[in-house]
Design a binder for these strands. Structure first.
Lengths: 144, 144
DNA sequence: CCAATCCGTACCGGAAAAGTCCGGTTTCCC
DNA sequence: GGGAAACCGGACTTTTCCGGTACGGATTGG
């Protein structure tokens, strides 16, 4: 179904909330604000921290801080941070010896232009674009 | 990892072989030619047949026949045939009541531009593009 | 010194995919 | 006309991977 993981979706939610609030936010606080599970939020934040999208500050008054405004953050970076490198098939990344039909496979490594095209399309969309069109009238959406 | 199913990969392989040989090919024959499992190839062909990309001819001398040259077949159609509609998250297609955090989710349905972008990128790449870079020297590849 | 918070790792359960199998129907060859 | 070959449609089993959870350690501020 050409899906990304749910964690990526959560990441967008958390990032959105992080920018809406501003400053340093704790993982439990963001969990309460987004309605997601606390361990899940912590996991997402951790991944984003490793990818350099947010910065974690340890200690008693610690928390997470946004390193870049969402308007300058392409969606592809979030996907890479959560789901790993963008590659539609397993044939392209590391292991190539695990394909038993290797010598008769006519498409060996030919998915590259596809991956490139998708990576390109995803680089052109910022997180801000899909997170909150107009932060002000967000309640209008949830009213439904 | 933003992956498509392996079946889609197989579909490209089978389609490529189908065009390389030309005419009507049987599922067991294609399985032997591609090195894939016979039931798996049959399954893929069945799906492609339902999607209208190939045509199945029943009976003793039956088999499958390509309905369109691969150069005119966008990759997106193959993905849709195998993996279903292109939608990155579960929030967009049918079920929207299954999201328990619906009332606090700030990204409701906002993935649409992303899906559109990917669908667009995939429509611009033909199967022939990734199947055989230069159709003429295909024998050089299969000669191993 | 203690509490709050992030960090890293390991574990477990459930869902979706991958592959297989079987009965039925259709068509061609003998 | 009978039998074989091939597609068709579904269901089933196995396997793999993702989502969620839990625990111990490290670090900082009061």
């Amino acid at each position: 179904m050409l899906r990304v993981s749910k964690l990526t979706d959560y990441a967008v939610v958390v990032l959105s909330r992080l920018e809406a609030e501003g400053g340093v936010q704790t993982a439990p606080g963001l969990a309460a604000a987004t309605g997601l599970g606390e361990p899940t939020v912590a996991k997402v934040l951790k991944m984003l921290s490793q990818a350099g999208l947010v910065e974690g500050q340890r200690g008693a008054r610690g928390g997470y801080r946004l390193l870049r405004p969402l308007a300058e953050l392409p969606l592809s970076e979030v996907i890479v941070a959560i789901d790993g490198p963008i590659a539609l098939t397993a044939c392209v990344d590391g292991g190539m010896g695990l394909c038993e039909a290797e010598h008769v496979c006519p498409v060996r490594g030919r998915w590259d232009p596809v991956n490139a095209a998708i990576r390109d399309a995803l680089s052109g969309i910022t997180v801000a674009r899909i997170a909150t069109p107009k932060p002000a009238l967000l309640p209008a959406l949830v009213a439904e």
